[in-house]
Amino acid sequence: MRGAVKITISVEDPTEHFQQRLLALLAEHAADVHVDTEWTVERAVRYYLSLPLNARRIVKEATIRDGYVPADELREDGDGSLRGHSAALKRAVERGVRNRWWPEGMEAPITPQGPGFGKVRGYCLRRNLVDVFFAAIAEVGLMSQRDALERAVRAGGGIWDAERTVKALAEAGVTVDDSRARQLLGDLADRGLLARNEANAENAENGKDSKNARDARDAKDAKDAKDAAVYEVTDIKEDRSAL
């Protein structure tokens, strides 16, 4: 039984003659050659930065939403056209091949979903690439604290307070204190993703909830009570059939 030998070849500015001979050699031994067509963080960074701004937003929103973003969430005026964005996502993959960022055969990381005839219902980022693209967008400094928390909330669901928020963001490589955590929770509540959970705050007296909720018992003014707020994820009604 032959052992596998891994050989990585990197050639800067190869001549056309060299390219042709190398490709011919690889073609001759195609059955024994594995072409690396996996999306890495480095490749995801190149892909993301090569996109126009509107297409970047599609990838970022799909990443935050754990792999799928409905088209309606991308239309700022509720009736904007998404025409052309799908082509930009496809061209970025082709551009990467031309620029030798990755080999031919790379599967598109994100694809439009819809009934056809140019209509788009949403965009689907391959589930196994969500973590890769999250790391890539964070690496170039374009993933905000709120973006990171929204992704954690959508993935984790359930009840959220400052304590859980601080821990979840720490796991994503983002450091915030309790005060900032409460601000971020309030932002997501304003966007409709979270709703204040009064029942859980009241249950704190029986020791059934988190530390932040229990602290609300002794709050002496409205500000302290708001600071100890507990939130619950609202129903997320998205068509995820493509995932």
Rank of each mutant, 00 (worst) to 15 (best):
V153M: 06
G118C: 09
A189F: 03
E150I: 03
R196A: 12
R151C: 02
R191W: 07
R83Y: 13
R214T: 06
A168F: 08
G118M: 11
G84S: 11
D32A: 12
A204G: 14
G96N: 10
A30F: 02
G114Q: 06
S144N: 05
L243Q: 12
R214L: 08
I64A: 01
H29Y: 14
G3C: 03
L169C: 09
P112D: 00
G3F: 10
N197M: 05
N197E: 15
T175P: 00
W102N: 04
L23C: 03
A242N: 02
A136Q: 03
A88M: 07
D224Y: 00
K6Y: 09
E42H: 12
A242R: 09
S179D: 05
V97E: 15
G78C: 12
G207P: 07
K119V: 13
A170S: 14
R180V: 14
L74V: 01
A213Q: 09
R100C: 02
A222P: 15
M1P: 05
W102T: 01
G141V: 02
V153A: 11
N200A: 07
R98P: 00
R46P: 00
I64K: 08
W160T: 11
A213F: 11
A201D: 02
K167N: 14
V35F: 12
A195R: 15
A24Y: 08
R83G: 08
A222V: 12
T234M: 09
N206E: 13
A170Y: 07
E38I: 04
N197A: 14
P52F: 04
Q145V: 07
R98S: 13
A181Q: 05
A201I: 15
A170Q: 12
Y48S: 03
E232G: 15
F117K: 14
A108W: 05
A242M: 04
T8K: 06
V97D: 03
R43A: 09
E232A: 15
E73F: 06
S81V: 06
L188N: 03
P70Q: 07
G158M: 10
L49T: 15
A108P: 04
D161R: 05
D72W: 02
E94T: 07
R100M: 01
R65L: 10
V93R: 15
R57Q: 12
G116F: 04
D32T: 11
R57K: 13
N212Q: 10
V140T: 13
G96R: 10
K208M: 12
E205N: 00
E61H: 02
G67W: 07
I159Y: 12
